[in-house]
């Protein structure tokens, strides 16, 4: 990591309370699946002349200037910086602590939620057919049955009698 890249990290992710500063994490470009355009932008950022991280206001001002002048590189640089940061185990522990989001990849354990339990929120107007009559005889017939018997369990055999052509 070059000094300019470290300044970039310190400027975009300076840290806050529990959140560490990105420049203090020994982040590694090779740890993420960056594509060529990201790496090329990151390389160009390494040549930017940025104030030292200790001068936070000047650094933020300089980065704002670079963002205006080189929006594409800046955007790609953000993906690089955030990508490394939010994949870092120390940061994921903070995320977990503050949000409940498990500090691990989504798989293989998943993030299972409780069952659907739609009974808690019964649907609106369950007996009122809301779809529009398309002007066919089938439409008339099916709407009438569905209206009078909304809980009817339909079979594939019944549905297979519907085709008109």
């Amino acid at each position: 990591m070059t000094p300019s890249q470290l300044c970039f990290l310190a400027g975009v992710l300076p840290g806050d309370g529990q959140w560490p500063c990105a420049a203090d994490l020994d982040l590694d470009e090779a740890s993420i699946g960056a594509n060529a355009s990201m790496l090329q932008a990151w390389e160009r950022i390494s040549k930017w002349a940025l104030p030292p991280r200790e001068k936070a206001e000047a650094l933020a001002e300089a980065l704002t200037t670079f963002e205006r002048a080189h929006p594409d590189d800046f955007a790609q640089g953000l993906v690089m910086a955030y990508g490394m940061y939010y994949a870092h185990p120390n940061v994921l522990k903070v995320v977990e602590h503050r949000s409940g989001y498990a500090a691990r990849p989504p798989q293989p354990q998943g993030h299972l939620v409780v069952s659907a339990d739609t009974g808690e929120h019964p649907m609106t107007n369950p007996a009122e057919v809301l779809w529009r009559n398309d002007g066919t005889s089938q439409s008339e017939q099916v709407r009438m049955i569905q209206q009078t018997d909304p809980d009817r369990v339909w079979t594939i055999e019944e549905i297979s009698t519907w085709p008109m052509s």
């Binding site: 939620v113 409780v114 069952s115 659907a116 339990d117 739609t118 929120h121 649907m123 107007n125 369950p126 007996a127 009122e128 057919v129 809301l130 779809w131 099916v142 049955i145 569905q146 909304p150 809980d151 009817r152 369990v153 339909w154 079979t155 594939i156 549905i159």
Partner: peptide, 23 residues
């Protein structure tokens, strides 16, 4: 999913229950 939607013509019972609604 869940059959019985009044917004659509009837369909057969779904193969498995619906995904969770979540918070």
């Amino acid at each position: 999913g869940r059959s019985g939607d009044p917004g659509n013509p009837p369909r057969t019972p779904r193969q498995t229950p619906p995904v969770p609604l979540g918070g």
